[in-house]
Design a binder for these strands. Structure first.
Length: 99
DNA sequence: GGGCTGACTGACG
DNA sequence: ACGTCAGCCAGCC
């Protein structure tokens, strides 16, 4: 486990309910080895205590293999969902912070 | 060692 | 506005 990935999980863990963030946005705050893909890679291996469902693609689309579960979780938290698998980043986007 | 894949993104037609 | 393409680079055959 690399310290950078720990930082990714730490940031994701800071995303409040009803808010989401994007892979690319996180990749800009942290010097991730492979940029946005690195974040996705990290999410794919979410250490367990990580609210991975609050991370979506830059367009607001849920790109996870279990998108239906993710979208359901987001709706359950009050995230502004458009339709199946889409989040309204205009409303739900969280202001990133490295610390 | 070489080629393909992917929980991405931004540019292009 | 929407579908495709190319760049990206660690992992996994």
């Amino acid at each position: 486990m690399d310290a950078r990935f720990v930082a990714i999980y730490a940031i994701v863990a800071r995303i409040p309910e009803g808010k989401v963030s994007t892979y690319g946005a996180i990749a800009r705050v942290i010097p991730v080895p492979r940029g946005a893909r690195g974040v996705g890679w990290a999410m794919a291996r979410c250490p367990a205590n990580v609210p991975w469902w609050r991370v979506v693609s830059a367009t607001g689309r849920v790109t996870s293999p279990n998108a239906h579960i993710q979208s359901e979780l987001l709706m359950n938290e009050g995230v502004a969902m458009r339709d199946n698998g889409f989040v309204d980043l205009t409303i739900a986007r969280w202001a990133l912070q490295a610390d």
